[in-house]
Design a protein around this nucleic acid. Structure first.
Length: 422
RNA sequence: GCGGGCGUAGCGUAGUGGUUAACGCGUCUGGUUGUGGCCCAGAAGAUCGAGGGUUCGAUCCCCUCCGCUCGCCCCA
């Protein structure tokens, strides 16, 4: 019978105590993207479902089993964004950004929704920092995006991180490679794990991602895509590598790196904590998506970007021992206990706010002790006390709460000026 | 979708087959004459996740469900 209302599974409330972490991360993203010439964009929380069905690929897990799709009252089929890139690309096309100076560098922080089984670092609603560079095929842009995420994490004192870099070539050569890969695996198929047997049919690249003991031996000797790239992709990859080196960014070539989205080509990357083995430890990842615009009905347009999970970044910060304190609720706390006190307190509070001071008025009817306790708990630096005697002569007591508790009587009209923000 | 752990006041925990379920933190109210932080006192706050079963009796034993959580798959 007790109906307990609670946040839906896989969602969470970000309480005041956690806000400093969110502020730190979003600030780091804002500042770093600005240093790279990115502009902010915001796209809707939901989109026409087709944006993702076409954009992300309708055989990807994200679209196939994780999308929150619904029909609205007008009969339109909509989806809560599971993934930012197609939405931003849609906006690029819709607003004719191809006529802006190219490439267009865009960033956002965006709610993502995926119907998935929650666990540590994985939620049904999560927030991503999303950066996209659209309108460029330049390999240097790939390196810049990787560097950008790297710098954001560095700014948050997450230094024990590692870039994993790979290339999945362009669609044509990749298809040829996949055939070679399947040829390699086919004779061993019956000895592979069930998961891998399924992957063989559905997503052969994932064979290389298996952690099952039964697959390891075959995986080790499997042909690696990154070793046999087409000339164009190999040259592209080489530029990315040397750019990262010149920027002093440590990376590791990961031949097994496979991303879960269909549209990637050439560069793919992830950044993970050095000491974290878990799959959900990935702090961010992305890659190049030169074919995506065409899939969405636009002209051929190069693109490169990444997403990074804010919740995961915060978990990692806390794991490293970061402790950020919430700000004080107020700077000035007005204690009133007098005939006419409430009205005077209310008026004084608005004067204080006009001069830039965060001000809280104590609860009417509570004792002075009680209000002073509230003042202390609010973190305010000053209490302004309105008592009968002072009010009778048009004055108030200003008390410094920070240490000794010095106090002085000040004319009511002079309080705001005295406590004004610098 | 699959497997493991857990479910007692807002939070963190204790506890027992049988009178009013305990403690800490937090909240509120007080500690004389109008004032915080420490300290002290008091109060409020829990149908012990839900339903069923065993039993004279269950918060404690059994089953089911729900929820949370960790892992697999996959992803940020």
């Amino acid at each position: 019978m007790t109906i307990k209302l609670q946040a839906p599974r896989g969602t969470q409330d970000v309480l005041p105590d956690a806000q400093p972490y969110w502020l730190a991360v979003t600030t780091a993203a804002k500042q770093t993207t600005k240093l790279h010439g990115f502009q902010r964009i915001d796209t809707p929380v939901f989109e026409d479902a087709a944006v993702f069905e076409k954009g992300s690929g309708d055989t990807t897990d994200i679209v196939e089993k994780e999308m929150y799709t619904f029909e609205d009252r007008g009969g339109d089929l909509l989806a809560l964004t599971p993934e930012g890139t197609p939405a931003i690309c849609r906006a690029y096309l819709e607003h004719g950004m191809a006529s802006w100076p190219q490439p267009v560098r865009l960033y956002t922080t965006h709610q993502m929704f995926r119907y998935d089984r929650p666990q540590k670092g994985r939620y049904r609603q999560h927030t991503q920092i999303d950066c996209e560079v659209i309108g460029s095929y330049d390999a240097l842009v790939d390196a810049e995006c990787i560097a950008l995420l790297w710098e954001i994490l560095q700014r948050l004192n997450l230094s024990e991180i590692e870039v994993r870099l790979g290339s999945i070539d362009d669609p044509g050569p990749r298809r040829a490679y996949i055939e070679r890969l399947k040829d390699y695996y086919r004779p061993h198929l019956s000895r592979l794990s069930e998961d891998s047997q399924r992957r063989f049919e559905r997503n052969p690249l994932r064979l290389l991602d298996s952690k099952d003991d039964r697959d390891l031996e075959y995986k080790e000797h499997a042909p690696k895509l990154v070793d046999q790239l087409s000339d164009a992709a190999a040259a592209h990859h080489a530029i990315v590598c040397s750019a990262l080196e010149s920027a002093g960014i440590a990376y590791r070539i990961d031949p097994m790196l496979v991303r879960g989205l269909d549209y990637y080509n050439r560069t793919v990357f992830e950044i993970v904590p050095t000491d974290d083995e878990r799959a959900q430890g990935t702090l961010g990842g992305g890659g190049r998506y030169d074919g995506l615009m065409e899939i969405l009905g636009g002209p051929p347009t190069g693109g490169m970007g990444f997403g990074s999970g804010i919740e995961r970044i915060i978990l990692e910060m806390q794991k490293r021992g970061a402790t950020l304190q919430p700000e004080a609720h107020a700077e000035v706390f007005i204690v009133h206990r007098a005939e006419g006190g409430p009205a005077a307190a209310f008026r004084l509070a608005s004067q204080l706010r006009r001069v830039g001071r965060a001000t809280i008025v104590g609860e009417s009817g509570r004792s002075m002790k009680s209000q002073m306790r509230s003042a202390n708990a609010s973190g305010a630096s000053f209490a302004v006390i309105l008592g009968d005697d002072e009010l009778a002569r048009g004055a108030a007591i200003v008390k410094d709460l920070r240490d000794g508790g010095e106090q002085a009587e000040v004319a009511l009209d002079a309080v705001a000026a005295r406590l004004a923000a610098d």
